[in-house]
Each structure stands twice: as C-alpha cells, then as structure tokens.
C-alpha cells in the first residue's frame, strides 16, 4: 500500500455543521472518502491509502484541483482507494463536501 498526504490551502471554509460524512465504497474502480472537521478554516488535509503505487503526481493534481474549486477549509479527509480513476476521485470529493453541508 502507498500512503500519501496532502496539506492544502483552500478557497474558504467548508459549509454546514455536520461532523462526519462518508461517501463511496472500497471496490474496484471506486473509493471511500471520509470527511471530518478539525483543521484550521483555511486548510484541508487529505490522507490517501492506495494499492496502486507510483501515482503520486496524479493524486497531487486531483487534490490540488479539488482544493481550488471547492470550499473545503477545516476538513480532514481520509481516502481509501480501490483503484479509482481521477474523475471518480474528483466526483467523490465533491459529493463528500456537499454531504457535509447537509443537516444530519
């Protein structure tokens, strides 16, 4: 397994008050994304565990793009990857942030 961590500055704090959200499952071509609060409001930390070695550059690009597009400040995000494509990763991250904005 390869473990990656990205500490990103973001466009603004994440909305909503929900403490925890989970989207996706760990299956082939899919991934689970757990979102929790607890980071500084201008910061987002993403921890990734992936069985596919050697894709750090791709993960860096996807997560940087996510931080630039979505207000994800204050979030601590954990990703368990089942070998997802970058577009699936981006989709799940966006779904996760939207879920955090919804009431429980």
């Amino acid at each position: 397994m390869e473990n990656l961590r990205y500490e990103l500055s973001t466009t603004g704090p994440a909305g909503g008050t929900r403490a925890v959200a989970l989207v996706g499952v760990v299956a082939s071509g899919n991934l689970e994304v757990l979102l929790e609060r607890g980071e500084a409001p201008d910061r987002c930390v993403i921890d990734i565990a992936t069985p596919a070695h050697g894709f750090a550059a791709l993960w860096q690009a996807v997560t940087a793009d996510f931080a630039a597009r979505m207000a994800a400040g204050g979030l601590r995000i954990t990703i368990n990857d089942g070998g997802a494509r970058p577009d699936t990763v981006a989709l799940r991250l966006a779904q996760g942030v939207r879920l955090m904005e919804k009431p429980e």
């Binding site: 397994m1 925890v20 989970l22 760990v26 689970e32 757990l34 929790e36 069985p51």
Partner: peptide, 21 residues
C-alpha cells in the same frame, strides 16, 4: 463503531489490499 472510529481490518495490508473504514 462507525468509520470515524477507524476499526478496520489489520490483515489486508499484508496482501497489498485496501481496507474499508
């Protein structure tokens, strides 16, 4: 014991398989 408690399998890393929370 939901996903935020991170009680996942300790045995899958041995097979280079991802865990689920």
């Amino acid at each position: 014991l939901g996903p935020e408690r991170r009680e996942f399998s300790p045995h899958l890393g041995l097979f280079n398989l991802p865990h689920q929370l």
